[in-house]
């Protein structure tokens, strides 16, 4: 059969979607190639991000023109990204499990649409509005109450001992991220719980289990694959979150966090915060190194998202074949 021009048009439009992904990785890699050569492996392990002397004549190092003293290391931002995401997930996972069980089994059925709407709305509040709330409410709360309380209760552990925190830092970034990933994790677990076949639940009841025991001991194990997929999906969101973290992180540079109130920067927030400074570099190496950060972030989130989609995808097939 001959393919009609109309169908070819649709194929072209559909091909734009993978085309965009390929274009992003290709252009980021091409553009950052000089930076990749100049920075080498030290890029990932270096703690110093120094644009060098932007007003002196650039020098030639390894065949590339760079400002004198320029050094690009992103370990601080990698640690900031991983630490905020890890703390956020540590809080968000149990909370999401609780919310999902409450929505799926605990809440009265006629309230369920409203209650799940509340959780879904958390996911549509723009990132920058979370940042605004963070600056206006969360940061003062941490500086005046939460950080001193942690210091008193857990101060014997160096990680929780803080001097006089400003409130901007690791804890505030992690808490804002927590709020942003809970709806993502909850939505996936909740819809998986709703798909648990009725006979399976009834079997658990017939064994004498109480409602909460059915939810926790019978239903949660049945959807454990979805739970793993949901957590990885949440991780993907947390790793790339930009504005909210930028606004409450304190913007650390050349400094590894050592306590829960230390200022930090994530890879995503650092890219935004560096635009003005990087543009001053006449050799363009700073802008190219930022492109290298974007490339690293892209590769990490691609891996995380592909993993999450593969896990949750296999599950839907599994559930469908069971029914």
């Amino acid at each position: 059969m001959r393919t009609s021009p109309f169908r070819i048009g649709l194929i072209v439009l559909a091909a734009i979607i993978p085309g965009m992904l390929i274009a992003v990785v290709l252009f980021l890699a091409l553009y950052s190639w000089p930076a990749i050569q100049f920075n080498g492996v030290g890029f990932l392990g270096g703690q110093t991000w120094n644009l060098g002397n932007l007003y002196a004549d650039p020098v030639t190092i390894r065949g590339m023109q760079v400002p004198i003293g320029a050094q690009y290391g992103i370990l601080v931002f990698i640690v900031g990204t991983l630490a905020t995401s890890a703390i956020a997930l540590l809080i968000a996972v149990p909370v999401s499990l609780g919310v999902s069980i409450f929505l799926a089994e605990g809440a009265p059925p006629h309230l369920r649409p409203t209650l799940s709407l509340i959780v879904e709305l958390l996911a549509v509040v723009p990132s920058v509005v979370y940042g605004l709330w963070g600056v206006a409410v969360l940061v003062p709360l941490i500086a005046h109450y939460i950080a001193p309380a942690l210091n008193t209760l857990l101060g014997f552990i160096p990680f929780f001992a803080g001097g006089s925190p400003t409130g901007f830092g690791l804890l505030s970034s992690s808490l804002v991220l927590t709020l942003m990933v809970v709806p993502i994790i909850t939505a996936t677990i909740y819809s998986a719980l709703l798909q648990v076949p009725r006979p399976d639940k009834e079997a658990a009841y017939a064994l004498g289990a109480m409602k909460f025991e059915v939810a926790v001991r019978a239903m949660l194990p049945m959807v454990r694959g979805s739970i793993v997929g949901a957590i990885i999906l949440g991780l993907g969101r947390a790793l790339g979150e930009t504005m909210a973290v930028l606004m409450v992180s304190g913007g650390a540079i050349n400094y590894l966090p050592d306590t829960i109130t230390s200022p930090i920067s994530t890879m995503a927030s650092f890219i935004v915060s560096q635009l003005d400074s990087a543009e001053q570099d006449p050799t363009g190496m700073a802008v190219r190194s930022l492109a290298e950060i974007a490339l690293v972030l892209f590769i990490i989130t691609i891996i995380v998202n592909v993993a999450a989609r593969l896990i949750t995808r296999g599950l839907h097939v599994g559930l469908a074949s069971r029914a």
Binding site: I17, A23, F27
Partner: peptide
């Protein structure tokens, strides 16, 4: 493939697309 990559694309941080 398109369906899968479209899901993956929604997970790419917006700042990466902005930098692109």
């Amino acid at each position: 493939a398109v369906r899968f990559l479209s899901d993956v694309l929604t997970g790419i941080p917006s700042i990466v697309l902005g930098y692109f």
